[in-house]
Simulated scan of single mutants.
Amino acid sequence: MSEHPLSGNVAKSVPVAPDDRRRALLGLVRAEGRLSVQQLSEHLGVSVETLRRDVRVLEDAGLLERVGGVVMPVESSSYETGLQFRSQRDLEEKRRICAEVVRRLGEAQTVFIDEGFHPLLLAQSLPEKRELVIVTASVPIAYHVADRPNLHVQLLGGRVRGNTLGTVGPSVEDALSQLHLDLAVIGANGVSDTGGMTTPDEAVAKVKRTAMGVSRRRLFMGAHHEFGVTAMVQFAKLTDFEAVVTGRELTAARARRFVDAGAALVRV
């Protein structure tokens, strides 16, 4: 976590208008990643009751999420969380999802693994004694698993995105388009029962679409908090994947909506 607004003797500037105050609240949570209601109340100089009302308004708008007394940002059409925040969220669930995806590798020998922290966890979870060719647009994945003797890693070169350290651009798409892969494991910023899989960045969407197009099989992996969220650019439909793997933290009622929309949903 950065030391942005909560460190040192930062003067509190309290916006008077509710909309201005909520914009300040949203910016603070996005800058820090996760903050308690008490921390936010003290920093913004408002009562806990006022702060909770503001959080509820932003929750209803799909911009913030409150779990207990902790407030966290939510992916949106114009905002994407970074690797540091993702590495601290829903780790137990993400590990269960990775284990299920590994179980579903089948006979695949060539695998595209998407960018992001959750795909990095998957790459680190791959079997130690199984020979695999890993194709990825993720610099962290290449860095962390390239020294494993059973994994042959091909990093797709292109422009590196600072937020996720994934590569994008025509060179990535061109290199992918020349390949024939057994399996693509794809993630998303949002999953909607009506809008499918989405991401805020068109360049990222193009890489995902290309990887899916050259892969014989496709698996989707995503934590429960990504379901019900819609980012700006759709890159896939629910029915494009042989399995949509998430955690049992996605409630049965919400899961039913995705199953009814055609998803081969697996909760682990």
Rank of each mutant, 00 (worst) to 15 (best):
H4N: 11
A11D: 03
V14F: 00
R23N: 15
A24P: 04
A24D: 06
S36I: 05
Q39M: 05
S41R: 08
V57K: 11
E59F: 07
E65S: 15
V67P: 10
V67F: 03
G69P: 13
V70R: 10
L83N: 07
Q88F: 02
E92V: 14
E93T: 06
E100H: 09
V102K: 05
A108K: 03
P119Y: 00
L121T: 05
A123R: 02
A123T: 02
L126Y: 01
L126I: 05
P127S: 03
L132P: 00
V133C: 08
A142S: 08
A146N: 05
R148L: 01
H152G: 06
L156E: 03
G158A: 11
L165S: 13
T167V: 04
T167S: 12
S171T: 14
E173P: 12
D174L: 13
Q178V: 15
D182E: 05
G187T: 06
D193I: 03
D193P: 13
D193L: 04
E202V: 07
R209A: 07
G213C: 07
M221Y: 08
G228V: 00
Q234H: 11
A243Q: 11
V245S: 10
L250H: 09
T251W: 00
A252D: 10
A255T: 09
F258A: 10
A263T: 10
R267C: 14
V268E: 15
